[in-house]
Design a protein around this nucleic acid. Sequence first.
DNA 1: CGCTGAGTTGAGAAGGTTCAAGGTATGTGG
DNA 2: CCACATACCTTGAACCTTCTCAACTCAGCG
Lengths: 257, 257
Amino acid sequence: MASDVKSPTGPRSRADALDEPTCTAADAVLSTLATQASRLRTRRGQNIALTLEGGEAVFIVRSGAFMLHVTMPDTPRQVVAFFFRGDVLRSSFAPPHANATLTSASAAEVWRLRWTVLEGLAAADPALACFLQDAMATQMARHAVHVAAIGQFSGEQRVATVLTELAMRTGMPTPAGGLMLDMPFSRKDIADYLGLNSDTLSRIMSRLRSTGVLGHSERSRALVRDFQALARLSPAARSLAEIHRGRRGGHCQSKLD
Amino acid sequence: MASDVKSPTGPRSRADALDEPTCTAADAVLSTLATQASRLRTRRGQNIALTLEGGEAVFIVRSGAFMLHVTMPDTPRQVVAFFFRGDVLRSSFAPPHANATLTSASAAEVWRLRWTVLEGLAAADPALACFLQDAMATQMARHAVHVAAIGQFSGEQRVATVLTELAMRTGMPTPAGGLMLDMPFSRKDIADYLGLNSDTLSRIMSRLRSTGVLGHSERSRALVRDFQALARLSPAARSLAEIHRGRRGGHCQSKLD
DNA sequence: CGCTGAGTTGAGAAGGTTCAAGGTATGTGG
DNA sequence: CCACATACCTTGAACCTTCTCAACTCAGCG
């Protein structure tokens, strides 16, 4: 597989990065919102109301991690998505009658605006409109990966996938050549994201630890000893790498190319 | 549950329909695209290239049914979403390196534009921008329901959910008080959408037939004898009803309210 | 020091999957 | 019009993964 991964252009390659730079840098675009948005600072575990005085709101994540989860009647909850810096969420993304909740998984900051306000600003500022559309597109692509993982991957593949994703978001290299990840999400959160039982998740992670892919670490942190082995376990590793390219600096990127 | 369903406003009710009518009728908005888009007519089973001369494209479904499916290395394919009239899809919604394919499930019509063109038109026409944003929002909500179904529902609940969804899209009432659905998707398609094996799907549908929820019918068609019983089997029935409200006329709506 | 909540682990049960065989509709060519 | 081929669907039996439930560990904390 190593040689396969070397080729940056896969079969059926879709739009190249060439299409995307129409958008100017996200931070420049967003700076214009600073005066319009309320900046919410959250602590771990805090729930955020999805609507604003009963109306539609938008949330733009500035730092930290959030998750959107839903609970359909008579079923356990499902974590629909994780959100990190740059992600955008509208109230109406949450299905009605589904007991949807937006929860902060770590100390975090999110900007909130009335949707109608942001809509108006986007109408006047093409760069902002583009930023929003591209945020949607990226999230749709991540969503597709998530669905494929829940629908078709084995337990181990799912766990490897979510760890790969977190490694790309928050992984920092360690002297020993591994990666240290922040784990803002609890075992239960991750299990609910993956459609697994948390006992099963725990078993799988123990197995990964015993095969040397993961290492021991303090709570709310995880040590990936062998990122390439982890990526090899996840059928979605290359997709995720491509999706995350251009977002953060990415210490993992180089290891897949 | 019948009495529960009577109340139109659930707990934690999110933005009311009041927010949405900012958008003018979809058909009026889209009519302005008629000269810009290529109208593709497809037959059942036809694959549509996701990119347009290597660049990013948008597809707006006008009639018929489509599905987007992805296949990650070493895993079976996953149908990520079904698309019907009014749905919008960008090339970049498909994750890279995932062997993504857009397939027509029936004779259908879809409009295709270069994304940059539609982006320009939307910048000039707020109603179009609003239509696009709301299409995204609806699809995100449906996506959340789909993830919850795959992640947390039992096989029977998943099947009931997809049948409920199809009933809301394409169901026509029969003299006997049931609903006749077009089934543009094969058993395998539906199984891949639900993250089930097609053998299992077949077994579940047989069971539903033997319990009188479904009836016998010709191929590529399904007969729902008792829609309310079906909806009772799906934890997502109320969510779906709410999401679809205001889209088609919906013969099913009245039965849930 | 005992409480609490999160994580781990084992044994048995449940639900899906796999594989293989048979059935049923649709289309094709004689 | 029939015989045949094909694709799709159905069903049964054995198997396997994951879930369930319960016991246990461990860290943080009053």
